Computed example of a mutant assay.
Amino acid sequence: MTDSLTLEVADLEVDVLTGIYSEETGKPQPLRITVQARYAVADRYDPDTPLDASKNYMDLKFAASEGLPEGVHFKLIEAVADHICETLFVGDARVEAVTVKIVKLAIAEADEKIGITLHRERPRGEG
């Protein structure tokens, strides 16, 4: 069995310009975003292992919030998820895979969770 390490930032609420319907365009929509990043694991994590042997959780949070381009309208939340994945791949060659779950909060009527989950593996030959 191969070791792996997955970092996660869950249930981050972010306002994003997204949507295809007239009532959605022109104003940000609240999204609940969860990001998981799997990356190359160190041989061992001792009590004094430095942060650079891991990935900073704040990089995941940044990719799903401030890392989204301001003023850009994403027609699909799939494009939002894709941008988050790409941001993490470009930012750290050790990232092997990214999973992004997005729930559109504005369209829920009875507290249901409506959204998508996108999983991307780093393209072969990159990194």
Rank of each mutant, 00 (worst) to 15 (best):
102 I>V: 12
44 R>W: 11
45 Y>M: 13
31 L>T: 02
124 R>Q: 13
120 R>I: 00
52 D>S: 12
24 E>D: 08
15 D>W: 13
77 I>C: 03
97 A>H: 03
43 D>Q: 11
45 Y>R: 09
95 V>A: 03
112 E>H: 05
55 K>F: 10
20 I>W: 09
5 L>Y: 08
17 L>A: 07
57 Y>M: 07
36 Q>L: 13
109 E>D: 10
10 A>T: 10
13 E>N: 09
77 I>E: 02
1 M>R: 11
9 V>P: 04
66 E>I: 06
108 A>R: 06
47 P>Q: 04
108 A>G: 06
117 T>G: 09
111 D>G: 09
26 G>S: 06
24 E>V: 01
49 T>S: 15
55 K>R: 14
74 F>I: 02
30 P>W: 01
122 R>M: 03
48 D>R: 10
111 D>T: 10
81 A>E: 02
37 A>W: 00
34 T>V: 00
79 A>E: 13
47 P>W: 02
19 G>I: 01
47 P>F: 00
110 A>Q: 13
45 Y>D: 12
57 Y>D: 05
38 R>Q: 15
121 E>N: 12
105 L>C: 10
56 N>Y: 09
118 L>R: 09
42 A>I: 08
87 T>M: 07
59 D>V: 02
42 A>M: 08
119 H>N: 13
35 V>Q: 00
7 L>K: 07
91 G>I: 03
115 G>S: 02
91 G>F: 05
86 E>D: 12
38 R>N: 12
119 H>M: 10
79 A>Y: 08
2 T>C: 10
40 A>D: 15
76 L>Y: 11
107 I>Y: 06
74 F>Y: 11
10 A>M: 06
76 L>Q: 11
85 C>D: 03
85 C>I: 01
127 G>P: 07
83 H>E: 14
108 A>V: 01
20 I>N: 08
67 G>Q: 02
40 A>R: 11
123 P>N: 04
42 A>L: 10
83 H>S: 12
73 H>N: 05
29 Q>C: 06
94 R>L: 05
115 G>R: 00
53 A>E: 15
108 A>D: 05
7 L>A: 08
33 I>H: 02
102 I>L: 06
39 Y>V: 04
94 R>P: 05
48 D>M: 11
59 D>R: 08
50 P>D: 05
72 V>K: 14
60 L>R: 00
9 V>G: 01
83 H>V: 09
28 P>T: 11
56 N>C: 12
107 I>R: 09
125 G>S: 04
71 G>V: 01
88 L>E: 03
116 I>S: 03
56 N>W: 07
113 K>Q: 15
93 A>F: 07
56 N>L: 08
125 G>F: 02
6 T>Q: 09
96 E>Y: 06
